[in-house]
């Protein structure tokens, strides 16, 4: 365990020195919420307080974005020469994989601290259990997205362009065809059908369920838990297997 922590800390302390990227995420959240969120919530009249709904949705989008960074970092490390070095260290491959996944989790936690706190304070009137359940859901979703992107990152070893194209297209579809920004009950049937395949639908609705939103406009929380668990376990398991069997450092010379 100490090896894993050392590996995580070795990179993390650079992120924190100074924590520019983390603070930038907070600033982006603040601007998005106070400008776009505040204005759009005045336009949306069919919901009591759309700002609350939007704030949760934006946190979910941040979770997706940060989780997808994990896969991208992994590929960048390969091309920068860090991956061959890490692969040559006396560490079992599974520990290395766990390190990559956990590092993504820790970065997620750091970047979401302020946005999530602000969101929880906007919603207010929460119990510690509901807040903790929402946090746990975000982590579970983050792991699932990280696993998905790590799995896809192996494409990048063949073609970085193809990887970028796939991830961009996937991100666009997964976010737009989901309940991140609008509840399922407002979606036309064709959109709702597509949203049922987006993991963000289950992530965002489960977080909202724990934070006390009207359950009638959310997907069934038990189904959401099952889907997120299946996503995290299957994608992380698949990525771990790929790393064990396939991963190689990028050849040089």
């Amino acid at each position: 365990m100490s090896t894993i922590l050392r590996l995580i800390w070795f990179d993390l302390k650079q992120e924190l020195n100074p924590p520019i990227w983390i603070v930038m995420e907070w600033v982006v959240f603040g601007i998005q919420l106070t400008v776009y969120g505040a204005l759009i919530s005045r336009l949306v009249t069919s919901m009591a307080d759309y700002l609350q709904f939007y704030a949760v949705g934006f946190v979910i989008m941040m979770t997706f974005e940060i989780g997808s960074h994990t896969g991208r970092h992994f590929v960048e490390h390969a091309h920068e020469g860090r991956l061959p070095y890490l692969l040559s260290l006396p560490i079992p491959r599974w520990k290395l994989f766990l390190t990559v996944a956990l590092q993504g989790g820790v970065e997620l936690a750091l970047m979401l601290t302020v946005p999530l706190s602000v969101t929880l304070s906007i919603i207010g009137n929460l119990t510690p259990i509901s807040a903790l359940s929402a946090v746990a859901t975000l982590f579970w979703l983050g792991f699932g997205v990280s696993g998905l992107m790590l799995g896809l990152s192996f494409i990048a070893f063949r073609s970085a362009d193809l990887y970028t194209a796939i991830v961009t297209a996937l991100s666009t579809m997964i976010i737009r065809f989901s309940t991140v920004l609008y509840p399922m009950i407002f979606l036309p049937a064709s959109y709702a059908g597509a949203a049922a395949f987006s993991p963000l639908t289950y992530g965002s609705d489960l977080v909202r369920f724990f934070l006390g939103f009207d359950p009638n406009m959310l997907v069934n929380p038990q189904i959401a838990i099952a889907v997120l668990t299946a996503l995290a376990v299957s994608t992380l398991g698949l990525s771990a297997m790929l790393m064990q069997r396939i991963v190689e450092g990028v050849k040089s010379g």
């Binding site: 490390h77 920068e80 020469g81 860090r82 061959p84 006396p90 491959r93 040089s252 010379g253």
Partner: peptide, 16 residues
């Protein structure tokens, strides 16, 4: 893993 416990490699390109 056992192989990596007994060897060390200095790479051609110092990067990363």
């Amino acid at each position: 893993t056992k192989v990596r416990q007994v060897l060390g490699i200095s790479f051609q390109d110092a990067r990363g």
